[in-house]
């Protein structure tokens, strides 16, 4: 793995993101586990992570109580479990004894456009829809989204934030002009 960060000796800074929109941000790592206790012990002792069971409103409420989805802070975070230092992302973890859902990442997509609009663009640019998708009439809740694959087959979990956002949340900042 080559160098990181400040080794991107580009002659310019990254482009500006002036829209009041988090579309395209890679927001959470998506990890998997087979043995909950082993996974927790590893995360806590090796990386110093902290975690809690992801709320039912976010998961849709149909998860396995014995092997729940987890939300993980990998660095300094608010009480909302959103990071408060730029430069790192937190994580989610799902029970996956089969190994059929490899680690991936959760990305945010347009809040104010149908999920189907993003999915159509994914397919038009060589990707594929592999799961979910609420269609044109998206539910305005915390579980709206879809899973897609990029042209190389990498799974991306797309999430559409509901209209509950107040835009005072620190993670919703953008390049204001």
């Amino acid at each position: 793995m080559p160098s990181l960060t400040n080794d991107v000796r580009a002659a310019r800074p990254p482009k500006r993101f002036p829209q009041k929109d988090l579309h395209g941000r890679v927001r959470y790592a998506q990890l998997i586990y087979r043995d909950l206790d082993h996974f927790k012990r590893f995360c806590v002792n090796v990386f110093g992570w902290d975690m809690f069971v992801t709320p039912a409103s976010v998961t849709g409420g149909d998860s396995d109580a014995a092997n729940p989805p987890l939300l993980i802070a990998t660095g300094p975070s608010y009480e909302t479990w959103e990071g408060f230092i730029p430069g790192h992302m937190n994580a989610g973890a799902n029970y996956d004894p089969s190994g059929k859902a490899p680690p991936g990442m959760m990305m945010e997509i347009h809040m104010d456009a149908p999920v189907a609009q993003t999915l159509a663009l994914v397919e038009a640019r060589g990707g594929a829809v592999t799961g979910g998708g609420d269609g044109p009439g998206d539910a305005d809740d915390w579980v709206s989204g879809a899973t897609v694959a990029d042209p190389a087959g990498n799974l991306l979990h797309l999430w559409k934030c509901p209209g509950s956002r107040t835009w005072e949340e620190p993670e919703t900042d953008y390049d204001r002009d």
Binding site: R27, P86, G87
Partner: peptide
């Protein structure tokens, strides 16, 4: 320096 300026994404 090509580091995010807003928290909670990568």
């Amino acid at each position: 320096n090509w580091e995010p300026s807003v928290p909670s994404f990568s």
